[in-house]
Write a protein that binds this DNA or RNA. Sequence first.
DNA 1: CAGAATCCAACCGGATACTG
DNA 2: CAGTATCCGGTTGGATTCTG
Lengths: 119, 119
Amino acid sequence: MRARVVEDDRGRREARDACLEPCPIERGMRIIGGKWTGSILWHLKDGPVRFNDLARMIGGASKKMITERLRQLEGHGLVRREVIDSAPISVTYEITDLGRTALGFLDELRTWSEGLPQG
Amino acid sequence: MRARVVEDDRGRREARDACLEPCPIERGMRIIGGKWTGSILWHLKDGPVRFNDLARMIGGASKKMITERLRQLEGHGLVRREVIDSAPISVTYEITDLGRTALGFLDELRTWSEGLPQG
DNA sequence: CAGAATCCAACCGGATACTG
DNA sequence: CAGTATCCGGTTGGATTCTG
């Protein structure tokens, strides 16, 4: 199993493979519609955020989930990971220019959702 | 189990319960981000469609899924179900005015997805 | 601090067969 | 035609523990 996956890409490869849907709406949803994915991207819009800060902002999601979703977003080039080798270590996540192109949609979704009958 | 659910609402009640996320983005995603949900809504934009026609349009989704998602959309008031009691029976699904309010960002998502590096 | 590793119950969703 | 019913393997995601 996992034949010929030489480099450990920490989920980046699978991130791509998961989005082979022919329908563009489905493809898009599989990229930014995952649990917590939209929220994560949204919370990065004002600048880089450290891992634990992000986890706190997304209250309700486990670190495991945050990590998985971040790897996936990285795999799609929507988020950049940066390691500052201080002590203690610091890792920040920053939205890329490509990632920013999704914020319009997310904002519309947010507005729509807030305007729904049941709040 | 299922205490006090007297009327059989065919999944409509659960549809609502599933969307109690405090974050509006997550809530929105749980409503239209389900597998096939966006596609279904999208294919209803030009008028009522019969069940089997819809199933054909969404090639790849099973009838079971189409049904489940339609019930969910109905529960959120985004789709209306209409039975024409002919022989053989005919059932059409039509997008509601509320449902139409989602077409804007679904179109944005479509455009966004199509413009991505990997197509 | 920023994860990785492991466990496991719950849910998801496809395949198939059946029905009014 | 428009579903429902059942089975069931695979995935999801929370909880917990461990690590450089």
